[in-house]
Amino acid sequence: MPEDKWLEVTYEDFGISPERELGRVRDFLGLEAGAAERKEAVAGVQATSVGKGREALDGDAVGRLERLVGDALGRFGYG
């Protein structure tokens, strides 16, 4: 797929810098939004959420997930 047809945004980047990443998405889509709209759109995003899901899983659950989706995670730089 041509690079101008897709935009990669990671959960971690969005969680850590939501306004910046939202700006990248907005620019990619050619949308405009005022400062108040941008702030409201990311108001619930918190950097402390990054990694929380994995921490909540026990070793067996992590192992099952890695067997199920490990290849896909590796292709996208996770794992």
Rank of each mutant, 00 (worst) to 15 (best):
E12A: 12
G63D: 11
A41C: 11
R38V: 14
K5T: 15
D71M: 00
L22G: 05
L57K: 06
G34D: 09
E21A: 14
R67G: 05
F14N: 10
L73E: 04
E32F: 11
L31K: 12
A41K: 06
E19A: 12
T48N: 09
Q46V: 10
G74L: 04
E40Q: 11
M1S: 14
A72D: 09
G23T: 11
E19C: 08
M1N: 14
G53N: 03
S17A: 13
K52N: 02
E8L: 13
L31E: 13
A33D: 03
L22I: 03
A61N: 00
Y78S: 00
G44L: 04
R64I: 05
E32M: 14
G70Q: 01
A56Y: 04
D4H: 09
A35R: 13
E12V: 10
W6E: 12
G15R: 13
D60H: 02
R26Q: 12
L29Q: 07
E3K: 14
A61D: 06
D60A: 05
E19V: 15
R24H: 15
V50Q: 04
G51N: 08
G70L: 05
A43S: 05
R54L: 10
V50R: 03
E32P: 07
E19M: 15
E32D: 06
A43F: 06
V50W: 04
G15A: 11
G74W: 04
R38T: 15
A36Y: 07
A72I: 07
G79N: 04
T10Y: 07
K5I: 08
G79D: 01
R67H: 02
A41N: 08
R24Y: 15
G44D: 09
Y11F: 15
G34H: 08
Q46I: 09
E37G: 06
R54Y: 04
L57F: 05
V45Q: 08
R26F: 11
M1E: 14
G30Q: 10
E55D: 05
P2I: 07
V45M: 11
W6D: 14
R20I: 12
I16Q: 12
L68Y: 08
